[in-house]
Structures are given as structure tokens and as C-alpha cells.
Computed example of a mutant assay.
Amino acid sequence: MDARTSKQFEFIELVLAYEGLLTNQRLRETFGISSVQSSRIIAAYRNTYPRNTSPVKGEGRGRYMPTSRFSPAIATLSIDRYFRAVANTSINIEMEEVRQDFTHVDPGYFRILHAAVTVNGAVQITYRSMNNPEGTERVVHPRAFVFAGRRWHLRAFDEVTEEHRDFNLARIYAAEPVEKTTPTPLDFDWDEYVNLQLRPHPSLNSAQEKLIRDELFSGAAGRQVTTRRALVRYVLRDLEVAENPDTQQPPEYQLYLLRIEEHSEKASLG
């Protein structure tokens, strides 16, 4: 299955799961295709996963609902994935997102950084920080882009500190490609994944704890979040997880970090 078909099938499953009705028109408008193409995509999905859909009777052709045996084969069901999938489609419900991107990035500088990520190159940047608000020059080896909180960051090896660091893209005030004169060391914190074992904050009473378990853990005792080791602090900050539950108290912190584990397929909530 190619990437385009997978994306179309994922959309079909998200709409079936969260709206309960898939139409030829909905698929056509979402992907900018003809009615015939839309019918072929739906037919291909139904042939591939025949147990997942059934026609809606008495309401014309091209309308399908999930069966009682519906089980998504492509999509990972989450309300966030659903909202992102339908964000730019014509649906008759209002949706708003309060997340704000405060990162103002010069497109010309970004193109240089993007190219360096693509070819594993080096870039000389002028970077401003709270310690050096006027900016300092340094050569970095860009690796990846990361959105954390309200900012976009560049993950890169810094030749000045000889460390892999995260650079706020909005604080890069100059960028120029340069020849790489030193090899890029391995970024173990980026390449390594860890499991964060999260639990309701121990200061919550029993009723509050049950509320958090039902709301965030689907009733389970806790939840495991897997992320790159380099991104742990961003995840904890975004989820408002207490690392020290004695000093970080509710209501600001309703979760706490029980432990960090090495990532493995056998890791559990134990």
C-alpha cells in the first residue's frame, strides 16, 4: 500500500469511527478528487477490509456506516488525530485550537537549515540567548526540527560546546552554509527512546485520582509515554508532570513521573 492510499484509508477510518458516516462527497472534497475516483477509493477500502463498513440503506448511494465489527486497520484512533485529519475539511461543527506558535523564523535562514538537515551539512549561525542577547557565532550540524510548547527548535551538534543542543529557531539571526570540517558525533540522547511511567499525583484524593485515571489513562492505574531521551523535559513540561511531587503540587500538577525506563517491547505499567 502506497503512502497516498494509506492516508486516504486512515481518513476513512477516522471519519467512520468518530462521525459514524462516510460519504462519497466527503472523500471527494477532502482530497480534491472526482466522484469516480472517490467511489474507487471507497470500493478499494471495502474490498480490503470488508468487515468494517456497510451501506446506509434508503438514503441513496455512496453513504457508508461502520459495522458492529468495525476495527481500524490503518488509523490509530485518537481524538487529536481525528481533529487534525478533518481540520481543513467542510464539516458542520466548530473547532478551535488555542495552541499558538510564537516562533518567527526568517524563511531564507530556514531554507539553509532545512538543506543542511537534508544533506547532513554544517551551518554558521548567529544565535541569541538570555546569556548572550546580542548573539554569538557558532557552527552547528543540524539534525532535526522539534515543536515543543509554543516554539520550534533545531536539534543540532554545536561545535562551540561540542554538545548536541536544541536551538530556538526564532533566536537564529543569521545562517550561512559552511564546509563541515569535523564529523558529527553520535547523538545518543536523540537516538535513544525511553518510557515515562506517569501516575496520578499522590496528593489527589481518591475521587480526584479516579477522575484523572478515567480522563487520561482510560481507567488504568497509569500511562506509559515513549519519547526520545532528548525530548523528555519537553514532554513533562507540556503534560505538566511533577518530577518532585513534594514541591510540585496540584492543581498545577495533576500527574507525576513515577520513573523513567529504558525503552523495550516488554516495558509495562508495572
Rank of each mutant, 00 (worst) to 15 (best):
R4Y: 03
F11V: 05
Y18S: 03
Y18C: 02
L21I: 12
Q25W: 07
R26H: 09
R40D: 03
I41Q: 05
I41K: 03
I42F: 06
A43H: 06
A43G: 12
Y45I: 04
N47C: 10
N47Y: 09
N52R: 08
V56C: 13
V56E: 06
K57M: 13
R61E: 12
R63S: 09
P66H: 10
F70Y: 12
S71T: 12
D80Q: 11
D80F: 04
D80W: 01
A85K: 06
E96L: 11
E97W: 11
Q100G: 08
D101Y: 06
T103F: 01
T103W: 01
P107F: 10
F110E: 04
F110M: 14
R111Q: 15
A116C: 10
V119E: 13
I125P: 00
I125G: 00
T126D: 11
R128W: 03
S129N: 07
N132M: 11
P133T: 03
G135I: 02
T136G: 08
V140R: 00
A144I: 04
F145R: 04
V146Q: 07
R151V: 00
R151C: 02
R155N: 07
E159H: 13
T161F: 07
E162K: 14
E162M: 09
R165P: 04
A170P: 02
R171H: 10
E176F: 09
L186P: 07
W190T: 03
R199K: 14
P202D: 13
S203P: 00
L204F: 07
S206V: 12
A207W: 11
K210R: 15
K210W: 05
L211V: 04
G219Q: 10
A220Q: 09
G222E: 02
R223E: 09
T227F: 00
R229I: 01
R233L: 03
Y234M: 04
D238F: 05
D238Q: 14
L239S: 04
L239Y: 03
E243C: 15
P245I: 07
D246I: 08
T247D: 12
P251K: 08
E252P: 01
Q254P: 01
R259S: 14
I260S: 03
E262V: 06
H263V: 01
H263D: 14
E265F: 11
